[in-house]
Structure formats: C-alpha cells, structure tokens
C-alpha cells in the first residue's frame, strides 16, 4: 500500500486516485486526471487533480476554487520539475492541499515543504526503506536555510535582520 506522509508522520489517505477512464464515484474524495476536471467538477465529489510535471501549472488555475487537492507527479526523485510546479501553484494562489506523488526521498522532504507541498504519497518500496521517523526528522536537520520558503521558518537573511541576532 502506498504510504501517505505529512510533517507529523504517517497519515491516513482519504483520497482515491482515479485511473484515466474509470467511472466517477458517487461520493467521497477523488483525484482525477487534468482532462476530467470539468466533468468531475459538476459532481458533488470532494475534488483533487493529478498533474504531470510537464504541463503548465497554469492549466489548473481556473479550477483552484473547486479543488481541495492537487497531486503533482514525481516520476523519479531525481526529476526535480515538481519542485517548481509546486512553487508555481502556490504563487498562482492555490491554497488547498498540495501533494507530491512518487518515489521521492526523505532528504527532499524539507525542500518539498519549502516549495509549498503539504504531504507525500510514497510507493511501497520507498515507504518500506524510509519509515515515517526518517521523514519527521528531515525538516529540522538544517535549522535555517538561505531561502525564505513556505514553511514559515523564515530564512537566514530574515534572522540576520532580527535585532537580537547580533
């Protein structure tokens, strides 16, 4: 079973990701492909969309109000396009839940959070090797970085401007 992780560790996944042409369920929370948003948005479903990392993030913007979740595809941990996709989605004003889906590694968790992601959905083999405690340990490892990010911690540049930082 894929494992959902957020900043507090293992989390329960209430979302169902729909295959390309599967029929829409009557109720619940469903993640649909981009080209089915229109159809799905007419239902009473709690709605999410799955974005490949090579489409313009702007494509989802008209639906932001209707979307509770956007899942960004990470085909491999080494393919870092998703970081910019997440960053762009936030910059465009998406305020719902942002999920990284794919074999990312715990060493990237802090970067994902900084780019605006809330959670990761890991395939089995990664989840087995990298238990939730690896993920909860990751964000504290570097107390402050040089970029402000979206975690609310601020940056070293901000800290230097605090009166007590000397």
């Amino acid at each position: 079973m894929p494992q959902l992780i957020d900043h507090l560790g293992a989390a329960r996944d209430i979302w169902t990701r729909l295959a390309e042409d599967a029929p829409l369920p009557g109720t619940g929370s469903a993640i649909v492909p981009l080209d089915r948003i229109e159809e799905a948005s007419a239902t009473g479903l709690e709605l999410g969309v799955h974005l490949p990392n090579d489409v313009e993030p702007e494509a989802a913007a008209p639906w932001f109000e209707r979307l509770s979740l956007i899942s960004v595809d990470f085909p491999s941990f080494a393919d870092g396009r998703g970081f910019s996709v997440g960053q762009r989605l936030r910059a465009l004003g998406f305020e719902g839940r942002l999920r990284a889906s794919g074999p990312v590694i715990s060493d990237q968790f802090d970067y994902l959070l900084a780019c605006g992601f809330d959670e990761v959905l890991l395939p089995d083999d990664v989840a087995e090797r990298q238990p939730p405690e690896h993920w909860t340990a990751a964000p504290g490892r570097i107390t402050l970085g040089y970029q402000r990010g979206r975690t609310g911690r601020g940056s070293i540049l901000d800290a230097r401007r605090m009166p007590h930082s000397g």
């Binding site: 870092g80 970081f83 960053q87 900084a114 780019c115 970085g145 040089y146």
Partner: peptide, 9 residues
Amino acid sequence: SLHPEFTFL
C-alpha cells in the same frame, strides 16, 4: 546553497 527548488535540476 541547498536551494529547495533547484537542487534536483
């Protein structure tokens, strides 16, 4: 340094 967005280019 450790730019969150640009470390897996």
